[in-house]
Design a protein around this nucleic acid. Sequence first.
DNA 1: GCTGAATTTGCAAACGTTTGCAAATTTGAA
DNA 2: TTCAAATTTGCAAACGTTTGCAAATTCAGC
Lengths: 326, 326
Amino acid sequence: MSVTIKDIAKVCDVSYSTVSRVLNGKNVRQNAKNDWILATAKALGYKPHNIARQLVTKESDTIGMIIPDVSNPHYSEITKSVQDYANWLGYQVLISNTDWDLVKESAARDSLLTKNVAGIIVMPVCDRSHLIFRSLDVPLVFLGTRTEEKHIDYVVMDNVQATMDATEYLIGRGCQTLAYIGRKISNYSSRDRMEGFLRAMKEHGLRAIVGSADSLEFPGGYAETKRLLTQVPRPDGLIVFNDQLAFSVMEGIISCGYAVGRDVLVVSFDDLQISALPQISLTTITPSKEELGRVAVDLILRRQKEPEAERKAVIVSSKMVKRATG
Amino acid sequence: MSVTIKDIAKVCDVSYSTVSRVLNGKNVRQNAKNDWILATAKALGYKPHNIARQLVTKESDTIGMIIPDVSNPHYSEITKSVQDYANWLGYQVLISNTDWDLVKESAARDSLLTKNVAGIIVMPVCDRSHLIFRSLDVPLVFLGTRTEEKHIDYVVMDNVQATMDATEYLIGRGCQTLAYIGRKISNYSSRDRMEGFLRAMKEHGLRAIVGSADSLEFPGGYAETKRLLTQVPRPDGLIVFNDQLAFSVMEGIISCGYAVGRDVLVVSFDDLQISALPQISLTTITPSKEELGRVAVDLILRRQKEPEAERKAVIVSSKMVKRATG
DNA sequence: GCTGAATTTGCAAACGTTTGCAAATTTGAA
DNA sequence: TTCAAATTTGCAAACGTTTGCAAATTCAGC
């Protein structure tokens, strides 16, 4: 059996409430008895029983996180930054994968709730995900997607503005014909990016081309890219929904006999670690992932403190990392 | 306040022990009262309070996992497979990152222990990690690294055999001069792979070249590869410790003016998802990650049932995925 | 050494469950 | 309808903590 507070109490011949208080540093003065208790606690190898502790304090030191898929670099990188910051604050992060499935997303929610987490950070499956998190009284943050739901805080980058900037950038680089490649299944981010693209194009009086990929996974944007590149005039610059999709887009460009970064410029979003590899070398736009994670955790903690606080939406700035593709 | 078993008891006018039993299906016969209790539980929106439950049953439905870095695809992919299987069995997985730091690794251990996890799956930082997990009485599994510690189960691939096979393969493809590129910081896996390589070369009476990279991260194997390729005779086949390292090795090959997959063949280990991208297209060796994860979880559960069971070491088979580089 | 204030202490209840025990109820067969 | 066996029920204790309260102790200043 593991050693409890009572064991220490017995050894030191005090009540166990005293041990509890000393261990929690609630006695402000230093006295010999304190030291003795602390010493025997260490000697006996006492480890606080968090479960019992939580039962009475109702405090939780774990934050739930719901993401589509940890094995996808985009999510694992953000997960890492959430974990780093949360751990630094003394919190653990419990991760659930949804595999892009709404049913699993709500199962994840339930499972997290019975763990009585301090709050849940969600990277939602789709535009309807918010329905799953209605009328929950646990602190909730959407990360990377905005939401109309007024009890859910969120943190996102300014997709519209960033894409306008990216469009300007490509125009500045001499592109004449630009296309945006999104994903078929609509989501806020893709729509916002498209909107930014369209807006910038309109301001420049240019005709905007828009395409969409069936899926983000590998052959995803290949066919659509080939289709776009055989049009006249053919696009000489592409803004792609995200890095992952850009991988297959680039493949499409190559298979049409064009050189990425020379005949066709490519800019996308996320700045995955692998996008920096020379073999890929994507020009890509991303907010600071550290900031994203930090803000998300802070929002949880804030709402934990003041559950009735006004809903907070944080827009973090993004920056473009210029590499070979654009 | 959230609804408890007592609330249900009050509504149904039974003792709360009865509610508890009905909810846990301990009453074998179906009667109207059962259904009524179940119904009101649902109506009231009762969610079992896992914390309280665990306090008395001492059962835990969470498995701890300690890995160097979730944002690294190798770890995130294995993490995913552990999670998938664990969730399927009704377990949650609590992940801690060590950032390749022994101190953080032992902090992760402590933090997981106070959460009273059912067991801990460890992908160790280095060869000395086992010291951190000595004399723990929680089920422990090393994943991807063997260990001498006799109370720690482990699951690994057969590194020696797989690398022998890979070496044979490259010889069969006509390579005359082969080199193995490992990492400076020694670990079991790298040593075993090197040993397999050396053994196979010896069997063929060929001279074996061995190099080592400072780090796995990007420029990691670049310099060493250039060094090796300027030797005479220059290697025309490379076996690289892992995919991540292979990325920079390939860069080195290209910068020497050789074509990967034609002038110099490359085989590595892990089969990261991105290694399948056409831009990378690595020939690579890996065990089934699903199997790895499944076995690790099963080992935890087994030892949880019989803590005194004999130590079990599982060797899973691996297969080579042939792509453009070799 | 005395006094009042400040601090520490022990007691007991609480957190939301599960569970052994003995009593009560239901069941099925005669 | 009756009886024994099978099942369900309620009670109370337990799990390892924290915490409000009142009593006891320590402290500082005189």
